[in-house]
Amino acid sequence: MSRYGLLARFSGPEALSEAARRLRERGYRRIDAFSPFPVPGLAAALGMRGTRLQWAALAGGLLGAAATYALILYSVVIDYPINVGGRALNAWPAYLVLAFEGGILGAALATFFGMLVGNRLPEYHHPVFNARTFSHAAGGGFFLLVEAADPRFRAEETQALLAALGAEHVEEVAP
């Protein structure tokens, strides 16, 4: 029988974090945890090494600001220069306001879409939704998923380990 993995339900965020840390210590690598609200340190316990979103935001911000300023410069210096009493064509203090707004817009778009791309969302379906106990209906529970593809995965052994770590319920997830 093929399976995607084992899904264990825990009573709360503390038990979940603890179990995630223990599994990781035992060499499990293809594990994921689910919670109804962000649990501090849980992603780190699962082996996540921070995100690169801040660089995406910085790049988006710089790009947005530079593109806005470049558009203005092109329009007033190259495409349609108008000499009004010898005033500078590149009136940078006025253009910085627009460059600032463009920068904020670029950074915000990069942050939002960076989050979606990093999380591979939107996603049409994920095997974890096959589990009977997995639902957000009650706000969502605290779950730990061990994928069958994990090199250390042994069905009975892993199930016993999850129970020993304090899981309230362990269930097989269909692929």
């Binding site: 939002f112 999380n119 969302l121 049409y124």
Partner: peptide, 27 residues
């Protein structure tokens, strides 16, 4: 969008949520 509350998702969600807040404040 298929949100499932994964810890990895939450980590990126939180960091980008704070970044958006930090961008919205000066805006």
């Amino acid at each position: 969008l298929g949100w499932r509350g994964s810890a990895f998702h939450w980590a990126r969600f939180e960091s980008s949520y704070y970044m958006l807040a930090a961008l919205a404040a000066p805006l």
